[in-house]
Design a protein around this nucleic acid. Structure first.
Lengths: 211, 211, 211, 211
DNA sequence: AATGAATGAGCGTTCATTCAT
DNA sequence: GATGAATGAACGCTCATTCAT
């Protein structure tokens, strides 16, 4: 549950931060293109703008790079979700806005989402658990948004299920792009998914009442 | 769209078939355990019950094995879907049955679904497209089922979206098992997803009318 | 105490034997010239007459090569000692012959002795113990020879000490060659060491009596 | 034969001396534990209490450290031998005392002896020769002690041989500790070796006469 | 004089693939 | 048709050394 640390032999923490950002940026592109396993450490180093030796001053193993990438993605997703999701608001439109924002966020970070999606399983067990924990947090955020926006209550299980559905529908936009993105624009996709959601939650009727 | 061919240097087609079945059976287990990249051709040969030399009489590259595996999985999934999904029936309960069957099928083939899910991207581009085409077929089957079962019509796009949602909800049961399978039994999961679907499609009211 | 086994992925045991002999032969020369650490696996492969890939079909790690080298040296030394040392004979001249043979053997295998001497400590702990055990056996052989040849008895400790002294004096001929071999010919060295030994054991007086 | 110099870019000779002492002290411990090759320059720097950059201000190469270590060990051994060995005394007991002191000295410096023993061969050729020269000096000291203590004369070659034997018997106490030190206490070892020596030199009879 | 980030040649090892038997 | 020994390109990683600060 604690912030998992990847040790570095460099002392200057600011530099570590900076170099790792370069690294993650370079690695995401590569991982997206060829996957984690087909990407070599030398390629990562090159894409990051430094030598293989320098790369290894900031990580211990290739898997550390993957962890850093995953961690950074989640961090950024979570950060943006927090900015965008107002969990106090209690209205259908705030729910819609939150979900719309989440979908837009996923669209923004398509490459990252795809990488995460396909490569988490290449992480060592403990890193995998750490990352999964973060995913739970994010699903939980969606859960809260729905809960607070509904004019009625749902069982915990139902909440959980719906949150998972939405969460996966977001990711689906990225990893099933070959199927979806030639038939839908992002806005279309969002609108249609929201409509279905609204129907599912029977919010259309209430909407008139509340609005 | 044609049946993609993996060439073999062995003439006897029956033997080729037989050996490849052994191969797929052995490989699935290995891929499931350690993923495609961490599995060696020697391990595949051993698990298949023949030597590395023999393995290469029936395939050209390691990726051929992956293709064979993916192809076989899709074939089996599709086959079972065809058995189970009656696309002529026009009723809510037949819709429910179809989807229930699909979810059960996914539960049955969890390991295979995960392998497919995580390794398709390791396939060469052309094999990837071939396999994706099969996935489209399967989504299309779901689409047809819904279409035929609805007492009203939906736009093609909506149909497609709903079919994709259901399709992914099925897969989600496998690849998000760490999140879902400790909170839900399979039946619970199916029931709740079906309820949500029914609500979403506003079939609950019609249900009384129709049945 | 068991014959420690280095596993090979090659099945044909005769071939394994043959290849490992090539390997040991090539490696000894290299290790003598540059030491274990400065010798690369590629150099070993080349000196053995096969590719790096083939090398690794017959061993697991570089340290295995060192172990094979050490083991083979001890095996050969021991074998020759057994041939040469007649432990039943009870006479001063048989003692002399035995020790003379041992010294000649060491001279023959100078390179090997030096390698063993300098590199055992690079072996993994368990291999080290195994090899040391063999050394004990050899010292023990010397002990027996002395014991059987003496017309009087010595305490076990004294026997052990003398055997160790002789054993090390043998090795000394190799690893202090820079000091000894420009002042002594082998025969001179042997004669003088034997004389000292005879005096030490007070065998010169008895000699007249016995002979 | 000259004092071999390791150049430093630092001018202040006192500082050079001081830093190199730190360096040697740190390095001996490390070499003892893991050998020269398995010890990294970073570890040496750390154990010496300064940074890797600073380390390289006082040496040119890693091998320089090894040379400094070997040199320092020999210096200390020689120094102590000089303190302890009275080369003017002419008696058996002074011979015994000298050799006893030498053995005790070796016991004191076991780790250092082992380091020296196993790593000299890693020194560059010229440094090796320089160090070997020092060893010759030490053997020569033993030679002188024996020569002066004997009531009769021996040929130079015999002297040399005996001195070498004693020298190596000393070292043997360290590098064959696994064999000797569980069977002998240091005093036992010394006593027994001395007895054998006395017998070898036929000093037991003379002893009564002289003393 | 001291630091430590950067470098890259070079290491040990793996494994997909080939081909003589 | 089956075997498995042989190959070598390529990988992940290390570490002695340099040099700007």
């Amino acid at each position: 549950m604690d912030k998992k640390q990847v040790p570095s032999s460099i002392k200057d923490q600011q530099l570590v931060e900076k170099r790792r950002n370069q690294m993650v940026k370079g690695a995401v592109t590569l991982f997206k293109e060829k996957g984690f396993h087909r990407t070599t450490t030398r390629e990562i180093a090159k894409a990051s703008g430094f030598s293989i030796g320098t790369l290894y001053e900031y990580i211990r193993t290739k898997e550390d790079v993957l962890f850093l990438v995953c961690d950074s993605i989640y961090e950024r997703v979570k950060e943006r979700m927090e900015q965008v999701i107002d969990m106090d608001q209690q209205s259908i439109s705030s729910l819609k806005n939150a979900i719309r924002s989440y979908f837009q966020l996923i669209d923004d970070m398509q490459d990252e989402v795809i990488v995460m999606y396909q490569e988490v399983k290449s992480l060592p067990k403990d890193a995998q658990e750490y990352v999964l924990e973060k995913e739970k947090d994010m699903v939980h955020m969606l859960e809260m948004v729905i809960k607070n926006s509904l004019p009625y209550t749902l069982s915990d299980k139902e909440m959980k299920l719906i949150a998972n559905n939405i969460f996966v529908q977001g990711q689906m936009w990225s990893f099933r792009r070959w199927m979806l993105q030639k038939d839908f624009t992002l806005d279309e996709y969002i609108d249609k998914q929201l409509n279905l959601l609204i129907q599912m939650l029977k919010l259309d009727e209430h909407a008139s009442e509340m609005k």
